[in-house]
Design a protein around this nucleic acid. Sequence first.
RNA 1: GGCCCGUUCGUCUAGGGGUUAGGACGCAUCCCUUUCACGGAUGAAACACGGGUUCGAUUCCCGUACGGGCUACCA
Length: 502
Amino acid sequence: MTPRLRFAPSPTGALHIGGVRTALYNYLFARKHNGVFLLRIEDTDQGRYVPGAEDYIIESLKWAGIVPDEGVGFGGNEGPYRQSDRKEIYHKFAHELVERGHAYYAFDTPDELEQRRQAEDNFTCNHLTRGTLTNSLTLGMDDARSWIEEGRPYVVRLKVEPGREIKINDLVRGEVTFQSGELDDKVLLKADGMPTYHLANVVDDHLMRITHVIRGEEWLPSTAHHVLLYEGFGWSDTMPVFSHLPLILKPVGSGKLSKRDGAKFGMPVFPLSWKGETSEDSFEGFREAGFLPEAMINFLALLGWHPGGDRELFTLDELISEFSIEHIGKSGARFDFEKAKWFNQKYIQSLPTDVLASLILPHAEKKGYNTDMAYLGQVASLMRERVTFIPDFVEAGYYFFEPVKSYDQETIAKKWNENLIPFFNNLTEFFSNFEPFEASQLEEQVKGLIQTAGYKPGDILPLLRIAFVGTMKGPAVFDTVVALGREESAARIRRFLEHISS
RNA sequence: GGCCCGUUCGUCUAGGGGUUAGGACGCAUCCCUUUCACGGAUGAAACACGGGUUCGAUUCCCGUACGGGCUACCA
């Protein structure tokens, strides 16, 4: 039997990075076992639906390289894959479950239930309290039916009988046991006719022939209900195997990583940027921050999973062949942005210069810089060892594209004196005429000039660097000079002299 | 409160009845380099606590503490 896995996000906004990891693990498992990975949109909460979220999810998965075989936006024969398009299906199954005696109609309003919760500690709708509520059990089925026909709002609730032990064999956590008497009568079908997650995910997983459910830890407590649903429908023998993933935690402090933490810690917690109604509801993504998708994936894969051994760097294909659920950790993993940055740096270093050039191109365009691909490749090869993010190439390395904006005063104060003016004037002359304009020969000749003039390299070279790029950071001076070109380097010495005498 | 899950360096983790408890990020020092980085080397840094079981527990069991999740007509 080919494994079939699903990623089932809710389109309530941007897809959180934890969701991307869940999608990734599902994808890795499916690929590893030659199975199918599908995307299902769980939009059963009309109140929380956010336009654009669905497209965001699809684009995120594509960017990350986690491409579904079936689902909304990807075709497939088990659709529709959007739950709002499957309303009738849930309706039918909910009523069927009532027929089978595993569910009942309930007429208590949310307000009434809220009042009971206020009045009674630990009040919940379960086998102990349902006799005191208004439902088809207390009313009788005939009356309940006529109430429904009259148009009274109702919900369908799962009827959980006490006295049973429900064992779940979780692939990550082992055997987890629940006492049915402690479970509540979950709402299956809401008054608006939409199913809750519990009904919809069980019905859809069954209909879509899902074999493995890999989802977040927050679903573990309600899995017992899901097992009861599979039983109630008579689907126990094809029930999927469950694996519950540990949560991704805040970098510091307690609790799970939230969208707020992005702004709080100055790091992305979403794959792509998202523009919400307000600035508080808008977020920068890994992509826009200058991450390579491969780096984000590698980082995410290792947040809660490790194949064993000492390796850190894995391509997607390697992740697929190494992946196993047994190696998923049980405890929450803290989101360590420093580590994420390290991965990005590593991946940037491993990319060919022409690929880097094409990644730099849009950033150069945006700033109105030189977009010659050969030149961008030159900048890429000089800067690649000193950047963390793609935009760093045109930010830290701005001086490859425009004149120096500020000169490092500390070095000038330490090294400069008026007597150097004639020597630097000579240098201007030298740079505008030297042939061939090549790094090692330039270096040799300039060092010769320095020596003949009676200086030491340490007296002049730092100043020359400041003249060209303004800072003591950056690639080797003579490599930089060659990239800048003859005219520009001479011009930069002139400008430096002007700056220093003003 | 109730139910469920978890706990190895600061962080991500490997490991597993007998190990100098391994790697990576970060941090520190040094080397390379007339800059910065990259790279290399070295170092500081961990089995939450208490009971069992055992010749021997970080590893198995039970408690405690701490952390987390769930407890909606949200997912």
